[in-house]
Design a protein around this nucleic acid. Sequence first.
DNA 1: CCTACCGATCGGTAGG
DNA 2: CCTACCGATCGGTAGG
Lengths: 193, 193
Amino acid sequence: MPVVISSTKKQILNAARNFFRERGYAATSMREIAKEVGVEPASLYSHFKSKEAILQYICFHIADEFFEMQEPILNSVSNPIEKLKRLVTGHINVIIENLEASSVFFNEWCYLKKSELKKFAEMRERYERGFRNVILEGITSGDFRMMDVSFTVRLLFSVMNGIHEWYKISGKVTPDEAGEKMSEFILNGLAIK
Amino acid sequence: MPVVISSTKKQILNAARNFFRERGYAATSMREIAKEVGVEPASLYSHFKSKEAILQYICFHIADEFFEMQEPILNSVSNPIEKLKRLVTGHINVIIENLEASSVFFNEWCYLKKSELKKFAEMRERYERGFRNVILEGITSGDFRMMDVSFTVRLLFSVMNGIHEWYKISGKVTPDEAGEKMSEFILNGLAIK
DNA sequence: CCTACCGATCGGTAGG
DNA sequence: CCTACCGATCGGTAGG
């Protein structure tokens, strides 16, 4: 059942995503967002009850996208290597298709209020567990080296998430090529064996 | 020639580094910094001419540390693999020994004023070039696979820089062990060959 | 969705 | 390094 969302609300979210990414949450004022949308500052409050509520919407909405991508892959039957490749490609595709929201998700989540911060941490833990399990499967199956799984998953997320800072939609590398190259980096590294 | 720096100035920098990392530059007020140091807000301005000047000091000071680490390694005669290992370990050691400053360097540089932003970008470009050249050397020598060097260097920096977000001084992984594990990840990846 | 407005807080300065 | 203070801007509300 699709959630109906007014055109003005969409515009507010769009403006907020851009400003929050560009200048940061704390440095963005409700007045700037209102001006961009073309309404008076007070009018924003008939769509969101606070500035932080806008941030909430952005962060949890993009989180849904990550889970919707992850679940079918985790439940598929492919081997660990194939599974990891698909997760990596899926993850960076979500980022690339939502560059502004992803940047806010990665960099501005800390401005969520306490109760939401807790939900946020639990969600991230659940998502990361999916990746950890695939790596464990791969070690068990003999496809992956023995390694410190927690440490490695953090490296994995660093590589994948970093892409939001430098990927250019207009560049010559398509999202799928980026997934290919990144998977090669993650699976085989730089050195010739 | 060591630059003499007053005890109060040091305290201001320390408080600023902590607050800028914890809440972000924009969300930190001069009043909070002053309170932490134990002086009146107005007194900060006899040490720094503006809030942004504090940010400048933090960003460019830690940048010096990165260059001081990099230069001798680039000029050493070790082979590309050894060189890259030492650069990786050196880079993350600078981060780990300066977690607050590094976080500010990576996340808050965008609040520098325009003229400083330009210097900052040039500096970063020069530093990254050092890494790119080592990878090029490695491809030429046959130690590294053929690859998209620009793309790979971005992945490399993502892996290395990400550590400032999750490394715990109190954890069981020492800085040198972290360098070892990270180099293994970068050079050989997850898969068994 | 607007007008009108609130109290709080901001970075920074004058002058000592 | 302090007292005293500035104009600007902030998130948000009342009431229509």
